[in-house]
Nucleic acid binder design. Structure first.
Lengths: 223, 223, 223, 223
DNA sequence: AATGAATGAGTCTTCATTCAT
DNA sequence: TATGAATGAAGACTCATTCAT
């Protein structure tokens, strides 16, 4: 077996299984037996299961940040100092997210990991991600700020995370939702489909009117 | 030890630990030792770990669905056959969601559990939830359908779940997000704050224009 | 529920389950849940699982020994001091064995239990049986001794157990053997059929010539 | 520790303990601790307790069938088309059964398993054995048929199983019977002893006169 | 007299990891 | 460099039994 063939097979298999079942529910035995690789190979090549998870993650994240920066460069070039419209920014983000995983499952894995990073109490994963792709996110946020000058900073922060929730929730729980949708709408949605559907929603959400100031809510005000 | 004190202690502890770590990462040993209860008690009272997970959920969902149905009854009464505006529906949902766990001061836990139900493998859990509160959700969906007659059914389905993602992600990852926000905006958000902020976003998202049909996407069409 | 109804239900159920699965493989939970009786009832009424096993046996052995003694009394009376022929003794045994469980239509169960008593570890059970019906067996053995004066004692002991093996194995594994036989010989045997077939075999076996003394076996002596 | 030393030690120990106590009453802990082997080793090497039981079984059965076929070959060669006498066939069977287990306990284990295979409700074990050594048994049965041409097929079938009962019951319940015999006859029987004693009994049983036809039984016909 | 609750010891099995080769 | 074997810790679950009521 070629040198790094084993490494690749492990990564490929782990990616699929992680996406299907989650991290805790996927054992190294599952991975190595499906990858037809020695059980000890994971520990030999990666050191530990944790390290394998991060490796799977990095294989997506590294090219993503690289491409994302490149795409933003191109965008800034094109607009040459002018404000980049919000739609362009979101579009660029979406395109890059979709482009990277030649392998299809890694997107789900990536989203799942992102979801974990935010929901898990221990912040170590969050910090790892923030130090890895925080810079790209900060750059993106700043461009969004310029595209939505009327939004208070805090509002923008929350709305971006509202949308992050939409994306992560939808894509990481994709299988579950697909099950439900398929039963009711005979429709086999693809990731691209979903992204297409998300676009107007996200734009509208970001451009929504500001909320009434705190304390002035009237429950039946709509009537 | 009092009658069903044990049951309550198990549920309370399991709830917290599940929310903190997820289902697979929480062992019965973790739960029973923290709850100061015999290891076999879980199996005695609930039958299995699976059943315990479902019981944790039911303790939320049972009162929730009950209240939710009551609230929708009241709403239908008030509107007396007329179409109930989307804002009212969302408002009612939000209020009920907030009321129920308020008693236990554990909205965050509930949301995290819901998130897990969607993202973690546990197919049994999703099925359990669907059969338990599916009816309430269906009723709600139908009212939303009447309030948004112009939306295709599939579109509405997905948008509702997009928004579900927003809510679950934001409220379940509240601590993490609060950390980040506090550092940057000196602002200590409350759950009510967030719900206030979400309202216009959710309404705008639901009312967003329809996406371009599949296959016709032009990347730079927005310009 | 009537007083000893519970006891009867436990015994009935235990009997069936023990015969189906063996003692160790049948839990008190199995028994009590199938008998629709409280889990603690076995320990309450019988004291322990061991005692339950013995009780199941006694319910057969008590009437059996009683009848067997009566039948032997009648036989001795009839032969009035003369030697009772072996065929009569075996016949009497067979008849009594068939009569007792006939009331409960559970000869098979009884045989399976007897088989278990010999083959399973349960030393306590063997000892219990020996002290319970050992006397009847001793009496029977002595009559057989008189009917077969030429047989050394040890030889008679073993041959009786050889035949016990035949009977227990055949009747306790009846279903399995019936399956095989039915497939090959289109014949649906009844218990009475089998007993009829066993009679000449058992007689011949008991009357077989003595074995060559130990150490003098010649493998090809038959030629 | 040497290569498959562990496997052998597990098999050896399991064999002894299974024979002493039965399968359900022997825990993997019992085995591994007595074999001075890690608790997980059984599952590592055999996969499950069930598989271990079958492995113990196969270690006896595989060489047995092989030798048995060889012995029958030799016999057929020697008799060169002539009918092989029943005594020779039984003798060959007995010899092969005794030869195989260099380790002494496996015979008892083997017999116990055979007993289980017939008496247990679930036929899976019976089917396993039938597919494993059914061919050898069929071959043997056919030779017995030629040696006892006067016997109706059904009669032969049942008599063979009567004798199987004798052998299995005696050898699998050996410890129990030995206990009883030792108390009464100061005699420490060996397996070889028993087989010597069985020989004339089995021959006589197979050659017993045919039973009276069904329906003509007269209980006191012997007088 | 009878039972629901509880328990401690035990079951088999699976885990990620290590080690000798 | 790579792997089959082995391992200690932990997993969920079941057991017969006890106890307070």
């Amino acid at each position: 077996m070629a040198q790094s063939d084993t490494v690749t097979r492990i990564l490929d298999t782990a990616e699929v299984l992680f996406a299907e079942r989650g991290f805790a529910e996927t054992s190294l035995r599952n991975i190595t037996s499906k990858a037809k690789v020695n059980l000890a190979a994971v520990n030999y090549h990666f050191g530990s299961k944790k390290a394998l998870i991060q490796a799977v993650f990095s294989r997506y994240l590294d090219p993503f940040t690289q491409r994302f920066h490149a795409a933003l460069d191109e965008l800034e070039n094109r607009y040459n100092g002018q404000v980049i419209p919000l739609e362009e920014l979101l579009e660029t983000m979406a395109r890059t997210v979709l482009e990277v995983p030649a392998e299809r499952n890694s997107l789900k894995v990536f989203m799942r990991l992102l979801g974990l990073a935010y929901s898990q109490a221990q912040g170590h994963l969050r910090r790892h991600i923030q130090s890895e792709y925080g810079e790209a996110f900060t750059r993106f946020t700043e461009l969004v700020r310029q595209a939505t000058p009327e939004l208070p900073d805090a509002e923008r922060f929350w709305r971006l995370h509202f949308m992050l929730g939409t994306v992560i929730f939808t894509l990481s729980g994709l299988d579950a939702l697909r099950d439900i949708a398929a039963k009711d709408y005979q429709e086999q949605v693809t990731v691209k489909d979903l992204v297409r559907r998300m676009r107007p929603v996200v734009v509208a959400a970001m451009n929504a009117p500001l909320p009434e100031p705190a304390g002035e809510r009237h429950v039946h005000a709509a009537t």
